[in-house]
Simulated scan of single mutants.
Amino acid sequence: MKKCLIVDKMHESIVPLLSEIGYEADYHPQITRQEVLEIISQYQGIIVRSKLKIDQEFIEYANQLQFVARAGAGLDQLDEAALHARNIHIFNAPEGNRDALAEHAIGMLLNLLNHINQADQQIRTGIWNREGNRGVELIGKTVGIIGYGHMGQAFARRLVGFGVKVLAYDKYRQNYGDAFAREATMATIFQQADILSLHVPLTEETNFLVDESYLNQFSKNIFIINTARGKVIKLDSLVSALSSGHVQGAALDVLENEKLDQLSPEQQITLNELQQSERVLFTPHVAGWTFESYEKINQVLVRKINALDLA
């Protein structure tokens, strides 16, 4: 029987699901990196979430490894080139949490446009301010989606009933326009978008993609949603754009550094400025993190692992 090591906390269904396709699963969510390196040579597969970086050093120890399965969508913790060089398969599970992320993005957008969180907090402190919480309607707006994979498509589908125009840009796809979004150039999105939603992975190319130069290219004063990766947006540039009014509001599920007790002095200053803005909405990297997606991610990964073994 093949063996699979699980090094992060997963939904309890993962062990029986792997057993059904012929894998002995060792579930060790508290294991350290050093402990993993000492035993990984025994395993044909490993399932990770975020705590373990799969780099060249790791691969040198993993002489039987056939696959790395990432319990989520992003692959920025994996050295993809090194894994491919060793013919080690990479699986992720965007199909498992795309619906959760899309619903969360819609919720954040509606909250931001209608000041729902702000109004709730004001009323709790005895403030009844109707004019200060006058909302902005979504209908008639143009939404620009950057990255039209599983997440971008799921978000576009949720927008259909709101009477918006959806433009999608994806550098690595062709002929991807569909019933939910029109394929567009970045120039068109810069010119027409009222709302920008980011759905790209974190790579060298997208690291701080949204900086001052990027934001200055928008013709309109926009709203931004980021449910992708924190480092896609340069947050000090966002602070400046919020201050100037070129960004009217930002919904951030992710941050440059999500270890809030380990911020650099510069990161702390930037976060403090964002925290003080009533036009910024935060959630703690939970856009794809629902009770349902927690289990669906397992189902997606095991289906892909099984397909590898059947090939």
Rank of each mutant, 00 (worst) to 15 (best):
K2H: 07
I6F: 06
H11G: 06
E12L: 11
S13P: 06
I14D: 01
V15I: 15
P16H: 03
P16V: 04
Y23V: 10
A25I: 04
P29V: 07
Q30W: 04
T32Y: 01
E35N: 05
V36I: 15
S41C: 03
Q42K: 14
Q44I: 02
L52H: 15
F58C: 11
Q64I: 04
L65Y: 11
Q66V: 05
V68F: 00
V68W: 00
V68N: 02
R70Q: 10
R70G: 08
A73T: 14
L75K: 09
E80T: 14
A81C: 06
N87S: 14
I88D: 00
I90M: 09
G96F: 02
A105Q: 13
M108Q: 15
N111Y: 08
Q118S: 13
Q121C: 05
I127Y: 07
N129K: 13
R130N: 11
E131I: 01
N133L: 11
I139W: 11
G140D: 14
V143A: 14
V143H: 08
I145T: 12
G147F: 03
G147P: 01
Y148T: 04
M151K: 02
A156F: 02
L159R: 00
G163V: 11
V164N: 03
K165Y: 02
K171G: 10
A181G: 08
M186G: 05
F190E: 06
A193K: 01
S197W: 07
H199W: 10
V200C: 11
E204P: 13
E204G: 14
E204R: 13
E204Q: 15
E205P: 08
E205K: 13
F208I: 01
L209G: 01
D211S: 10
S213W: 05
S213F: 04
K220S: 00
A228K: 09
K231H: 10
V239E: 04
L242V: 05
S243H: 12
S244V: 09
H246K: 15
G249C: 04
A250D: 08
E258Q: 08
P265F: 11
Q267G: 07
Q268P: 06
I269F: 02
L271D: 09
E278M: 03
V280I: 06
F282I: 01
T283L: 03
V286Y: 01
A287D: 08
W289S: 09
T290D: 05
F291E: 13
F291S: 10
K296F: 03
K296T: 14
N298D: 13
L301M: 09
V302K: 05
I305R: 03
A311Y: 06
